[in-house]
Amino acid sequence: MSLESLYQQIILDHYKNPRNFGEAPGCAVSVEHENPLCGDHLKVAINVADGHITEIKFSGKGCAISQASASMMTETMKGRPVEEARSLVEEFRRMMRGDQEFAALDEAGEMEALKGVLQFPVRIKCAVLAWDALESCLRGL
């Protein structure tokens, strides 16, 4: 287990240049989740039209893993039908439990980089935080 297997280049890139990061005053639904373990808080905001996620943003403070995972999540979800997004969250959770291969969700080929987190069990919570927040957003619809 090396540092490089956890913090792969793709993760560091998403951490330093997060996609879809920022406040989203125009978004209709937003949910803030906290990780009491590390004090991180992360807000996910979405807009939905015609059953699709038309806009998605995230904001907050967190470690490299939670921020990179949030960034990848927003890229994955933008434009998706709501039902598909819901099942993708479930798939991601299965992946982070080691119950499913990463390929299924990995259209951009980047999600694979989060596989390293599985070797660091205490960090899995960090990776799942944004996905949990999105699920709460979708539940509110």
Binding site: S2, C38, K61, A64, I65, F120
Partner: peptide
Amino acid sequence: HPHDLAQVLDQEGVAARA
């Protein structure tokens, strides 16, 4: 982030808390 810092420290054998 302190979590990331503690992770690097652990790789160096240093047990600190974040």
